[in-house]
Protein backbone atom coordinates (compact mmCIF):
# COMPACT_ATOMS: atom_id res chain seq x y z
CA UNK A 1 0.00 0.00 0.00
CA UNK A 2 1.56 3.31 -1.02
CA UNK A 3 2.02 6.46 1.07
CA UNK A 4 -0.92 8.26 -0.50
CA UNK A 5 -3.35 5.46 0.31
CA UNK A 6 -2.21 5.02 3.91
CA UNK A 7 -2.37 8.78 4.48
CA UNK A 8 -5.89 9.03 3.02
CA UNK A 9 -7.16 6.04 5.04
CA UNK A 10 -5.61 7.48 8.23
CA UNK A 11 -7.23 10.84 7.62
CA UNK A 12 -10.56 9.19 6.75
CA UNK A 13 -10.56 7.28 10.04
CA UNK A 14 -9.80 10.52 11.91
CA UNK A 15 -12.77 12.17 10.22
CA UNK A 16 -15.00 9.31 11.38
CA UNK A 17 -13.60 9.56 14.89
CA UNK A 18 -14.45 13.26 14.98
CA UNK A 19 -18.09 12.71 14.06
CA UNK A 20 -19.72 12.13 17.45
CA UNK A 21 -23.24 11.70 16.08
CA UNK A 22 -22.09 8.86 13.87
CA UNK A 23 -20.14 7.23 16.69
CA UNK A 24 -23.14 7.55 18.99
CA UNK A 25 -25.31 5.91 16.34
CA UNK A 26 -22.84 3.05 16.02
CA UNK A 27 -23.16 2.31 19.73
CA UNK A 28 -26.77 3.27 20.32
CA UNK A 29 -28.59 1.85 17.30
CA UNK A 30 -27.45 -1.79 17.66
CA UNK A 31 -28.30 -1.75 21.36
CA UNK A 32 -31.63 -0.02 20.70
CA UNK A 33 -32.87 -1.95 17.68
CA UNK A 34 -31.60 -5.44 18.49
CA UNK A 35 -31.92 -5.06 22.25
CA UNK A 36 -35.41 -3.56 22.13
CA UNK A 37 -36.75 -6.27 19.84
CA UNK A 38 -35.30 -9.02 22.00
CA UNK A 39 -36.88 -7.50 25.10
CA UNK A 40 -40.24 -6.77 23.49
CA UNK A 41 -41.03 -10.03 21.71
CA UNK A 42 -42.94 -12.72 23.67
CA UNK A 43 -41.02 -15.66 25.01
CA UNK A 44 -42.54 -18.23 22.63
CA UNK A 45 -41.36 -20.48 19.81
CA UNK A 46 -42.15 -19.50 16.24
CA UNK A 47 -42.03 -21.46 12.96
CA UNK A 48 -39.55 -20.08 10.43
CA UNK A 49 -38.49 -21.25 6.97
CA UNK A 50 -34.70 -21.51 6.91
CA UNK A 51 -33.06 -22.76 3.73
CA UNK A 52 -36.34 -24.32 2.64
CA UNK A 53 -36.79 -26.21 5.89
CA UNK A 54 -39.49 -25.42 8.43
CA UNK A 55 -37.88 -24.94 11.85
CA UNK A 56 -39.21 -23.89 15.21
CA UNK A 57 -37.01 -21.32 16.96
CA UNK A 58 -37.38 -19.19 20.10
CA UNK A 59 -38.81 -15.78 19.22
CA UNK A 60 -36.07 -13.96 21.16
CA UNK A 61 -33.35 -15.80 19.23
CA UNK A 62 -35.12 -15.06 16.00
CA UNK A 63 -35.46 -11.35 16.89
CA UNK A 64 -31.76 -11.08 17.68
CA UNK A 65 -30.70 -12.85 14.47
CA UNK A 66 -33.21 -11.03 12.31
CA UNK A 67 -32.57 -7.51 13.58
CA UNK A 68 -28.79 -7.87 13.21
CA UNK A 69 -28.76 -7.57 9.38
CA UNK A 70 -31.43 -4.85 9.56
CA UNK A 71 -29.26 -2.79 11.91
CA UNK A 72 -26.07 -3.44 9.97
CA UNK A 73 -27.72 -2.56 6.65
CA UNK A 74 -29.06 0.75 8.00
CA UNK A 75 -25.81 1.76 9.69
CA UNK A 76 -23.55 0.66 6.85
CA UNK A 77 -25.67 2.58 4.37
CA UNK A 78 -25.40 5.69 6.54
CA UNK A 79 -21.63 5.22 6.88
CA UNK A 80 -21.25 4.94 3.09
CA UNK A 81 -23.46 7.95 2.58
CA UNK A 82 -21.57 9.99 5.18
CA UNK A 83 -18.22 8.99 3.71
CA UNK A 84 -19.04 10.18 0.22
CA UNK A 85 -20.97 13.26 1.33
CA UNK A 86 -18.15 14.58 3.47
CA UNK A 87 -15.38 13.87 1.01
CA UNK A 88 -16.76 14.20 -2.50
CA UNK A 89 -16.24 17.96 -2.91
CA UNK A 90 -12.60 17.74 -1.86
CA UNK A 91 -11.88 14.40 -3.55
CA UNK A 92 -11.65 15.91 -7.03
CA UNK A 93 -9.18 18.44 -5.64
CA UNK A 94 -7.18 15.56 -4.21
CA UNK A 95 -7.26 13.90 -7.64
CA UNK A 96 -6.01 17.12 -9.21
CA UNK A 97 -3.25 17.28 -6.61
CA UNK A 98 -1.90 13.91 -7.65
CA UNK A 99 -4.02 11.04 -6.33
CA UNK A 100 -4.68 8.52 -9.07
CA UNK A 101 -8.17 7.08 -9.43
CA UNK A 102 -6.85 3.82 -7.99
CA UNK A 103 -5.26 5.56 -5.00
CA UNK A 104 -8.49 7.32 -4.17
CA UNK A 105 -10.81 4.36 -4.75
CA UNK A 106 -8.64 2.02 -2.67
CA UNK A 107 -8.45 4.67 0.09
CA UNK A 108 -12.19 5.20 0.22
CA UNK A 109 -13.01 1.49 -0.02
CA UNK A 110 -10.49 0.88 2.79
CA UNK A 111 -12.08 3.52 5.01
CA UNK A 112 -15.58 2.24 4.20
CA UNK A 113 -14.48 -1.31 4.97
CA UNK A 114 -13.13 -0.29 8.37
CA UNK A 115 -16.39 1.50 9.16
CA UNK A 116 -18.43 -1.55 8.19
CA UNK A 117 -16.26 -3.85 10.30
CA UNK A 118 -16.96 -1.58 13.31
CA UNK A 119 -20.71 -1.59 12.57
CA UNK A 120 -20.72 -5.38 12.16
CA UNK A 121 -18.78 -5.98 15.36
CA UNK A 122 -21.00 -3.64 17.39
CA UNK A 123 -24.16 -5.34 16.12
CA UNK A 124 -22.88 -8.90 16.52
CA UNK A 125 -21.74 -8.18 20.08
CA UNK A 126 -25.25 -7.01 20.99
CA UNK A 127 -26.83 -9.97 19.19
CA UNK A 128 -24.73 -12.63 20.91
CA UNK A 129 -25.87 -11.30 24.27
CA UNK A 130 -29.32 -12.60 23.32
CA UNK A 131 -28.51 -15.80 21.46
CA UNK A 132 -25.66 -18.00 20.30
CA UNK A 133 -25.53 -18.66 16.54
CA UNK A 134 -25.14 -22.28 15.49
CA UNK A 135 -22.17 -21.28 13.31
CA UNK A 136 -20.60 -18.11 14.64
CA UNK A 137 -17.95 -17.40 12.01
CA UNK A 138 -20.33 -17.80 9.03
CA UNK A 139 -22.88 -15.68 10.93
CA UNK A 140 -20.33 -12.86 11.30
CA UNK A 141 -19.21 -13.26 7.68
CA UNK A 142 -22.78 -13.07 6.38
CA UNK A 143 -23.45 -10.01 8.54
CA UNK A 144 -20.32 -8.40 7.13
CA UNK A 145 -21.55 -9.10 3.59
CA UNK A 146 -24.86 -7.38 4.37
CA UNK A 147 -22.85 -4.42 5.65
CA UNK A 148 -20.61 -4.27 2.59
CA UNK A 149 -23.59 -4.48 0.25
CA UNK A 150 -25.41 -1.61 1.92
CA UNK A 151 -22.24 0.39 2.53
CA UNK A 152 -21.49 0.44 -1.20
CA UNK A 153 -25.14 1.25 -1.92
CA UNK A 154 -24.81 4.17 0.50
CA UNK A 155 -21.85 5.50 -1.49
CA UNK A 156 -23.69 5.24 -4.81
CA UNK A 157 -26.90 6.75 -3.40
CA UNK A 158 -24.90 9.55 -1.76
CA UNK A 159 -23.32 10.52 -5.08
CA UNK A 160 -26.53 10.28 -7.08
CA UNK A 161 -29.13 11.68 -4.68
CA UNK A 162 -27.39 14.00 -2.23
CA UNK A 163 -27.75 14.05 1.55
CA UNK A 164 -31.46 14.33 2.36
CA UNK A 165 -32.72 12.04 -0.38
CA UNK A 166 -29.88 9.66 0.36
CA UNK A 167 -30.72 9.39 4.07
CA UNK A 168 -34.36 8.61 3.25
CA UNK A 169 -33.38 5.92 0.75
CA UNK A 170 -30.80 4.36 3.05
CA UNK A 171 -33.28 4.20 5.93
CA UNK A 172 -36.16 2.97 3.78
CA UNK A 173 -34.48 0.35 1.59
CA UNK A 174 -33.16 -1.95 4.36
CA UNK A 175 -36.64 -1.88 5.90
CA UNK A 176 -38.22 -3.01 2.65
CA UNK A 177 -35.49 -5.43 1.63
CA UNK A 178 -34.46 -7.13 4.86
CA UNK A 179 -37.38 -6.54 7.19
CA UNK A 180 -40.17 -7.19 4.72
CA UNK A 181 -39.01 -9.41 1.88
CA UNK A 182 -36.21 -11.49 3.42
CA UNK A 183 -38.21 -12.33 6.54
CA UNK A 184 -38.20 -16.11 7.25
CA UNK A 185 -41.49 -15.72 9.11
CA UNK A 186 -43.17 -14.53 5.92
CA UNK A 187 -44.27 -16.96 3.26
CA UNK A 188 -44.56 -16.73 -0.50
CA UNK A 189 -42.26 -13.81 -1.14
CA UNK A 190 -42.46 -12.80 -4.83
CA UNK A 191 -39.75 -14.23 -7.07
CA UNK A 192 -38.27 -10.81 -7.88
CA UNK A 193 -37.33 -10.28 -4.22
CA UNK A 194 -34.44 -12.68 -4.79
CA UNK A 195 -32.84 -9.83 -6.74
CA UNK A 196 -32.81 -7.50 -3.73
CA UNK A 197 -29.39 -6.66 -2.27
CA UNK A 198 -29.56 -8.63 0.95
CA UNK A 199 -31.27 -11.78 -0.37
CA UNK A 200 -28.27 -14.11 -0.50
CA UNK A 201 -26.48 -12.62 2.50
CA UNK A 202 -29.53 -12.87 4.79
CA UNK A 203 -30.20 -16.46 3.63
CA UNK A 204 -26.60 -17.30 4.56
CA UNK A 205 -27.00 -15.44 7.85
CA UNK A 206 -30.16 -17.34 8.90
CA UNK A 207 -28.51 -20.61 7.90
CA UNK A 208 -25.55 -19.79 10.12
CA UNK A 209 -27.78 -18.60 12.95
CA UNK A 210 -30.07 -21.63 13.18
CA UNK A 211 -28.41 -24.55 11.37
CA UNK A 212 -24.98 -26.08 11.47
CA UNK A 213 -24.82 -26.26 7.67
CA UNK A 214 -23.26 -23.64 5.43
CA UNK A 215 -24.92 -22.94 2.12
CA UNK A 216 -22.11 -22.20 -0.33
CA UNK A 217 -24.61 -21.07 -2.96
CA UNK A 218 -25.94 -18.31 -0.69
CA UNK A 219 -22.45 -17.20 0.31
CA UNK A 220 -21.30 -17.26 -3.29
CA UNK A 221 -24.35 -15.26 -4.37
CA UNK A 222 -23.76 -12.71 -1.60
CA UNK A 223 -20.09 -12.32 -2.53
CA UNK A 224 -20.96 -12.00 -6.23
CA UNK A 225 -23.62 -9.40 -5.45
CA UNK A 226 -21.15 -7.44 -3.32
CA UNK A 227 -18.45 -7.56 -5.99
CA UNK A 228 -20.95 -6.50 -8.67
CA UNK A 229 -22.08 -3.55 -6.56
CA UNK A 230 -18.46 -2.67 -5.82
CA UNK A 231 -17.72 -2.45 -9.54
CA UNK A 232 -20.74 -0.18 -10.04
CA UNK A 233 -19.74 1.88 -6.99
CA UNK A 234 -16.17 2.31 -8.25
CA UNK A 235 -17.40 3.41 -11.68
CA UNK A 236 -19.84 5.95 -10.20
CA UNK A 237 -17.22 7.24 -7.76
CA UNK A 238 -14.61 7.45 -10.52
CA UNK A 239 -17.00 9.42 -12.71
CA UNK A 240 -17.87 11.77 -9.83
CA UNK A 241 -14.24 12.59 -9.00
CA UNK A 242 -12.78 12.45 -12.49
CA UNK A 243 -10.28 15.15 -13.54
CA UNK A 244 -8.48 15.66 -16.84
Amino acid sequence: MNRRITTAVRMGVREFRRTPVLLALLVFLPAYIIGAFVLLVPDVDVPATIDGTRLTVPMTDFAAAFMTPVTVAILSGIVGLFLVQTSQAADDRLRLAGYTATDLVVSRVGTLGLGIVVVTMASVVVAVFAFTPESTVPFVAATLLVGLTYGILGVVVGIVLGRLGGVYVMLFSPMVDVLLFQNPLATDAPEWTTLLPSHYATNALFDAAFTSSIDAWDFGGAVAYTVGLLVIGVLVFYQATDVE
Binding site: R3, T7, R14, R18, T86, R93, A97, G98
Partner: peptide, 19 residues
Protein backbone atom coordinates in the same frame (compact mmCIF):
# COMPACT_ATOMS: atom_id res chain seq x y z
CA UNK B 1 -12.95 22.27 -0.98
CA UNK B 2 -11.36 20.86 2.14
CA UNK B 3 -12.07 18.07 4.59
CA UNK B 4 -13.96 19.78 7.41
CA UNK B 5 -12.97 17.38 10.17
CA UNK B 6 -9.23 17.47 9.51
CA UNK B 7 -6.99 19.98 11.24
CA UNK B 8 -4.91 22.53 9.36
CA UNK B 9 -1.77 20.42 9.90
CA UNK B 10 -3.52 17.28 8.67
CA UNK B 11 -4.77 19.15 5.61
CA UNK B 12 -1.21 20.16 4.74
CA UNK B 13 -0.09 16.56 5.32
CA UNK B 14 -2.81 15.06 3.10
CA UNK B 15 -2.43 17.45 0.19
CA UNK B 16 1.35 17.55 0.50
CA UNK B 17 1.37 13.76 0.18
CA UNK B 18 -0.93 14.10 -2.84
CA UNK B 19 1.56 16.50 -4.46
Amino acid sequence: RLYDRLTVDETFQLFGTAY
